[in-house]
Simulated scan of single mutants.
Amino acid sequence: MSRSPALTLLALSVATLLPSAALAQHHAGHHGHATAQSAQEDGEQDPHAMQARPTPVPKAEDPHAGHARHEASQPVEDAHGSHAQDEHAGHMAHAAAPDMPRTPIPPVNDADRAAAFPTLHQHMEHASDFNWYVNFNRLEAWDADEGRGEAWEATAWFGSDLNRLWLRSEGERTDGRTEAADIEVLYGRSVSAWWDVVGGVRQETRPGPSRSWAALGVQGLAPYKFEVQATAYVGDGGRVEANVEAEYELLLTNRLILQPLLELDFAAKNDEPRGVGSGLSKAEAGLRLRYEFTRRFAPYIGVVHERAFGRTADLREADGEHVNDTRFVAGVRLWF
């Protein structure tokens, strides 16, 4: 087959170029290697040339940087690894935090205290050294078969929490005639949080002739909130008598209060002019229900039973009086 002259010339050109390119690449690689080797040989042969070039100083590696790169390159495997990283970060943050706040806290002054407790001094004020109190515990009346009657029982004191002057009075009238009346003037001294010791004189106008007595007793709040008053009286001629009174307040509501009361009288010897016999001479029990419109004003209704005992009962029968007496009463309780 005959080839055209053009194709024959192209084939010869390609065959010529391919060996030349390969030879040039091989020569370039050999020349680079030789150049590097020559430079090394030149350095070995010329020591001053090596000293002339500055020697690079290796950088001190941060020990944490390697760990940080290593930890960053690996995934978090479990909670323990995460906790270790968080703890390390927390230590780093704590070390970087300052010891003192950026804005110092100012000290507390008198103006700050006054603004925080504006009424503190008013609440800490002490009570007055002198006080007083007047209470009409019973101011009542009744209408019975024996006639109409009235009775009272009042207490007042003046002084301080430790030392007081006490005034006590009680009495009873029937059909306009005073059956019994007395007044006591006592000095009281507080001996505990709930009890006072009292001592003084008692003046009695009824029954019988007027007489004076020396008085000594205690009064206060017994356990279970019983108000107790016990007083002994010593008169002329060796007469000794005693009175014991106890009452209790039962709150049915905040305003409705039931008050039971028990009073006992004792005598050491007979006193016929006064109608009093030895031993337990008289007992009185009462039950009063009051409604407190205010603490200072409280009307009430109630029932009272009185009974004489022993020689006292005999003396009453001899005078035509009743030994037992039950009556319904109505009254008011006041204090100021």
Rank of each mutant, 00 (worst) to 15 (best):
P5L: 07
T8Y: 00
L10A: 10
L10S: 03
S13I: 13
A15R: 05
T16P: 05
T16M: 03
L17N: 04
L17W: 12
S20L: 14
S20G: 07
L23S: 04
Q25G: 12
H27T: 15
G29D: 15
H30S: 12
S38W: 11
Q40I: 08
Q40E: 11
E41M: 04
D42F: 05
Q45L: 13
D46C: 01
P47I: 15
P47L: 12
H48P: 07
H48G: 11
A49S: 10
M50Q: 14
P54H: 11
T55C: 13
T55A: 10
P56N: 09
R69W: 08
S73I: 01
D78R: 06
G81S: 12
S82Y: 13
A84C: 04
Q85W: 12
D86N: 04
G90R: 13
A93H: 10
H94P: 01
M100H: 07
R102W: 06
R102Y: 05
T103V: 08
P104Y: 01
P107T: 01
P107E: 07
V108N: 05
V108Q: 04
V108R: 03
A115W: 03
F117S: 11
T119Q: 03
H126N: 10
S128P: 08
D129H: 04
Y133G: 03
Y133D: 15
R138G: 01
R138E: 01
L139V: 08
E140V: 02
A144V: 02
G149I: 01
A154T: 14
A156T: 01
A156P: 00
D161K: 05
N163L: 11
L165I: 14
S169Y: 04
E170D: 14
G171Y: 02
R173D: 13
T174A: 02
G176C: 05
T178D: 05
A180T: 00
A181R: 00
A181P: 14
V185Y: 08
L186Q: 07
G188E: 11
S192H: 09
W194S: 08
W194N: 08
W195M: 10
V198R: 06
G200A: 07
E204W: 02
E204Y: 00
R206G: 13
P207K: 11
S210V: 15
S212F: 06
S212Y: 11
W213P: 04
G217Y: 08
Q219R: 14
L221W: 12
A222S: 02
Q229T: 07
A232W: 06
A232N: 07
A232M: 14
Y233S: 09
Y233N: 14
G235R: 05
D236R: 13
G238Q: 02
V240H: 03
V240M: 06
E241H: 03
N243R: 14
V244S: 05
L251G: 00
L252C: 01
N254D: 15
L256N: 10
I257D: 03
A267P: 05
S281Q: 12
S281M: 06
A285H: 03
L289G: 05
R290T: 12
R295E: 15
F297I: 15
F297C: 09
Y300R: 08
V303E: 00
H305Q: 15
T312H: 04
T312S: 06
T312W: 02
A313R: 06
D314Y: 02
R316Q: 15
D319S: 15
V323Q: 09
N324L: 03
N324C: 01
N324Y: 01
T326C: 01
F328E: 01
V329K: 00
V332F: 07
V332C: 03
F336V: 13
F336R: 10
